[in-house]
Design a protein around this nucleic acid. Structure first.
Length: 574
RNA sequence: CGGGAUGUAGCGCAGUUUGGUAGCGCAUCUGGUUUGGGACCAGAGGGCCGCAGGUUCGAAUCCUGUCAUCCCGACCA
């Protein structure tokens, strides 16, 4: 590619709406442009990198026996109604109507579609297992698109679906994908970590997320500083630690004026926050429930929602509380009889706790569940694990990091085969539901994650396997024909050798070309200048560390080929 | 969904308070000088001031509505 004709509109200034580094750099390097909120056009440089990531994904999927298909982005409402998700998915499902008013959606994912295909054409156990995948544009009408390709409404995603005879087959498929994902992200040059995860709206039990570690990440992950346990904050939890028994003191009601929060109460009573029990009213599908948690803990609404099995969960507003004369900040479980009470596992073990008195600005001291002071209908792990707590699996301690979710793998079991009646005929002649798994990779998000992890003040530093081009040749002065000719010849030779190289033949001063080269992030820069050329050399500079060396013109091709091969090898497994 | 902010040239912004017919930097084009880290001089082109309505002799500016974009929050009792 010659830069004079390359469409890479680099910017000196960043558009004001870019917030994180990868978004800014992709805009500045002329890789993407915004078309609407959360909808982007991929310009040539971004598209080249995207295709490289896709290719890595294809190779690793194929290596596990995956077969690529392409399904429609537009899906009829009927199949979503059949699975029940038309109503469950919520506002993020991008619904559209055709000219006749028929309902469709732009697919956020393709479980329904692929299940239909399977249902129509696969009958026998002899045809299993199957691993089908697709790479395509998907849609989620995000409540708040942000951070460029990181959280967009239209995005490119690889989804693979596995169909197995039984759980053992699913485990095998799942493990194949677990391995494939490690290979994919390693080959993309990412610093990542697989973590135990919640399966969310897609459903099913058993899931890992692949997290690229980055401060700009939207997910929090907890990991052990000693063993290799790691999980998202959404599901991380542990059994309560044993509590020292105490003498149960008589319950007492005290005035606690203007103490609206746990911190206020703790301060007012000179007690640590872990001696208090928080009482939270939630509205779960319009049903009021109470949730109790230790004062210094945070309720994990994802855990709560999956326990309650409700579609919508929100904290109750003041209006729905005031009926009983209760006051936010002074709520408690004592004396409550009509509302179901859920408690985090730690709560029933606690002695002499403080709770709201449900009586003006007062709290109750020395409340003991074990004495029967209040009722709990169900206990469960309902809180977030916090940094610094003991690891759930060893004596180590929990650390917190941020990550970008670039992939997730799920065991769906028979969730969709049951609702959509996806069966096969087993060896014994009976119909059985097929056991499914699904495995996603956010292609654009992976690209963003790479940049997020690999850049400096001047621009992007591409890992070789996903760089849009491997090298750039810069003749330093375009009036000197010897420089220009050498650069041209080198370019022709490298192209013939299969090197992905750009010749920056623009009528620009050297400084402009250097700045653009750094911004775009070509891994190797070949500078053709008079001084070195007098010695028969060109300068070769590495983007990743700025190292510069002279290489004889005749040696450049083999030098580059070696370097590229070595860099790609650095990002490979085995 | 709630709150806040912003929409003026491709990008970044000023002008709005106090209404008088639109400006700066970068980018673009032309000519010249320059040529190893975003050059300089001279000139030029480019804007329905988000959109719609209203007030006014006159609106980027005031009023109403609407759309879009961005940020923060989405309840810790």
């Amino acid at each position: 590619m010659k830069a004079s004709n390359m469409f890479a509109p680099t910017l000196r200034e960043v558009p004001a709406d870019a917030e994180i580094i990868s978004h800014k750099l992709m805009l500045r390097a002329g890789m993407i442009r915004k078309t609407a909120s959360g909808v982007y056009t991929y310009l040539p440089l971004a598209w080249r990198s995207i295709r490289k990531i896709e290719e890595i994904v294809r190779q690793e999927m194929d290596a596990k026996g995956g077969q690529e298909v392409l399904m429609p982005a537009v899906q009829p409402a009927e199949i979503w109604q059949e699975s029940g998700r038309w109503n469950v998915y919520g506002a993020e499902l991008w619904r559209v109507k055709d000219r006749n008013g028929r309902d469709f959606c732009l697919g956020p994912t393709h479980e329904e579609m692929i299940s239909m295909i399977f249902r129509n054409d696969v009958r026998s156990y002899k045809q299993l297992p199957q691993l089908w995948y697709q790479i395509q544009t998907k849609y989620r009408d995000e409540r708040r698109p942000r951070f460029g390709l990181m959280r967009s409404r239209e995005f490119i995603m690889k989804d693979l679906y596995s169909f197995d005879l039984d759980e053992a087959g699913l485990d095998k498929s799942y493990n194949l994908m677990y391995d494939a994902y490690n290979r994919v992200f390693t080959r993309c040059g990412l610093n990542f970590r697989p973590v135990e995860a919640d399966s969310g709206a897609i459903g099913g039990k058993g899931s890992h997320e692949f997290m690229a570690l980055a401060d700009a990440g939207e997910s929090a992950i907890l990991y052990c500083d000693t063993c290799d346990w790691a999980a998202t904050d959404e599901i991380a939890g542990r059994e309560p630690l044993p509590v020292e028994p105490e003498e149960m003191l008589p319950m007492e009601k005290v005035d606690t004026p203007s103490c609206g929060t746990v911190e206020d109460v703790a301060k007012f009573l000179s007690l640590p926050t872990n001696r208090i029990v928080k009482t939270m009213y939630y509205k779960a599908d319009e049903q009021l429930v109470i949730v109790l948690v230790r004062g210094d803990r945070r309720i994990n609404e994802i855990k709560l929602q999956s326990l309650l099995g409700c579609n919508e969960l929100e904290l109750a507003d003041n209006a729905s509380l005031s009926t009983g004369g209760q006051k936010v900040g002074y709520l408690g479980p004592v004396g409550v009889d009509k509302i179901k009470i859920y408690a985090d596992n730690e709560v029933p073990l606690m002695y002499n706790v403080v709770v709201g008195a449900n009586d003006g600005e007062r709290h109750l001291l020395n409340v003991n569940y074990q004495r029967g002071d209040f009722r709990i209908d169900q206990t469960a792990d309902l809180r977030y694990l916090e940094e610094g707590e003991q690891c759930p699996h060893c004596q180590g301690h929990v650390k917190l990091a941020r990550g970008i979710e670039v992939g997730q793998i799920f065991k769906l079991h028979t969730k969709y085969s049951d609702s959509l009646h996806v069966n096969y005929t087993a060896e014994d002649g009976h119909e059985r539901p097929v056991v499914m798994g699904c495995y996603g990779i956010g292609i654009g998000r992976t690209l963003a994650a790479v940049i997020e992890q690999s850049h400096d003040d001047d621009g992007i530093i591409w890992p070789m396997p996903v760089a849009p081009y491997q090298a750039v040749i810069i003749p330093v002065n375009d009036r000197e024909t010897e420089l220009v000719n050498t650069a041209e010849n080198l370019y022709t030779e490298l192209i013939a050798a299969g090197v992905e190289v750009v010749l920056d033949n623009r009528q620009e001063r050297a400084g402009v070309k250097f700045k653009d080269a750094d911004l775009i992030g070509y891994p190797v820069r070949i500078t053709v200048g008079a001084k070195a050329l007098a010695r028969g050399n060109v300068e070769v500079r590495l983007r990743q560390n700025g190292e510069m060396q002279e290489v004889a013109v005749a040696e450049v091709k083999s030098w580059l080929q070696d370097y590229i091969a070595a860099e790609i090898a650095k990002c490979s497994i085995n």
